[in-house]
Design a protein around this nucleic acid. Structure first.
Lengths: 227, 227
DNA sequence: GTTTACATACATACACGAATGTATGTAAAG
DNA sequence: CTTTACATACATTCGTGTATGTATGTAAAC
């Protein structure tokens, strides 16, 4: 069995990536050899070396096939012309969690990216892909929060940047924890409640929102600079 | 140079772990060989095999040396007898972030655990260590929130479990994102503001905290079960 | 306080498989 | 007939595990 037509070749390429996706998710990236992938895909290593330069290229190609959870955040239109920016953020966040928990391929690949690979210098491409995804998420949320303040949906005391970074961290933390142990928290069922809890907290924030805690640290005479 | 006394042997063991910590953090776990570690520690592989069974044991020993960020959460006394449970949570959370950002060894090891190793079946010990740390954090926060409701520090509408999981996710997400890219957000400087934003949100939560968003999805006739 | 006997704390050397990259073969598509 | 899309074969490196050597600490016997 040798040369197939162009589309057959593409199909072979996808079978390789499918196999890589499964094996990476089962055994981790560095513990999966190209021989393993070839065997699982029903081809030889020669086929892999024809389509990709090395394992790193297989990995990035596998990642490039899917839409990451946070990518949904930038997609959902929370632009300045949206009538309900806060609602858009809510919908986007729910979409992110929905995709992360329900789309099997997205879930598998993201799990590999978070828990089954090591980020060294050679992984810059994938790392930057993730960083871009995150930055888009934060920027979008920040803009939406700013708009929400302008439209009176949020009090002026809210720091849009802080709120956006917090939302991103919350989503990221939820997804990664849930992927590490799905019994830990029923993320799908409680996703809406979690997002609403966070957004409601912003909505009700007072202008001078200082905690009234009694054990709050007294202001020291000399304050250390924190970087 | 051969057999040193007992304390010299312990020193050798620590030098091996120090080298492993550095190399794991620089090159990742699976891309670091025992020969690399031995060379960096100024010993031979024989010394490593004397102190540890294999690389996995080196890794877990390295992890066991340090206190993880979330471990601080369980340590800070937020027990039922605390007069100010919410303040205790705040202090604990700040302590977690402070340790994660300021203690170089904690930061390095946690970075390795999060971004520089792959969690396969063989890594159960370390994975469970992390899970335990997280569960203790959530349990502690949940109890504190419950106490806070009892003492009137939080409105009764707050779901303690939800708030605790959210806080843990927020902390975890902040730390991991910051470790991946420290320029992304000045975590040390804004840690207190971030925690206060979250806790203030809980404090001001109304009893029926339904979002007033106009783009909120209409209730469908048939609701999908979310698991 | 030597000597004996053994355990400790490594260093050295070797044997093996595993993984990679490359070079080459080859049959079908265009 | 050339290029494509692989398969096959080979060379080499790398990492591991283990076996073995060996000098020292250490404790007891005498």
């Amino acid at each position: 069995m040798v040369r197939r037509t162009r589309d057959k070749a593409l199909e072979t390429r996808n079978r390789i990536l499918d196999a890589a996706e499964r094996l990476f998710s089962e055994q981790g990236v560095s513990h999966t050899s190209l021989a393993d992938i070839a065997k699982a895909a029903g081809v030889t290593r020669g086929a892999i070396y024809w389509h990709f330069r090395d394992k790193g290229e297989v990995f990035t190609a596998m990642v490039d096939r899917v839409t990451l959870p946070m990518d949904e955040m930038g997609a959902c239109g929370a632009g300045p012309r949206a009538a309900d920016p806060l609602g858009a953020v809510r919908a986007s966040a729910l979409f992110v969690l929905e995709r992360a928990t329900s789309d099997p391929q997205c879930r598998r690949v993201f799990d590999v990216m978070v828990h089954k690979c090591e980020y060294l210098d050679e992984m810059v491409e994938v790392k930057q892909r993730m960083a871009k995804s995150q930055q888009a998420c934060v920027r979008n949320a920040e803009q939406a929060f700013r708009d929400a303040i302008g439209r009176g949906q949020l009090p002026a005391g809210v720091d849009p940047r802080l709120a956006a970074v917090g939302l991103d961290a919350l989503l990221h933390g939820l997804i990664t924890s849930w992927l590490a142990n799905r019994d830990y928290f029923p993320l799908k069922r409680r996703a809406a409640a979690m997002i609403d809890m966070y957004l409601d907290g912003l909505r009700r924030a007072g202008p001078a929102s200082a905690p009234r805690s009694t054990t709050r640290p007294r202001p020291k005479t000399a304050r250390k600079r924190a970087g």
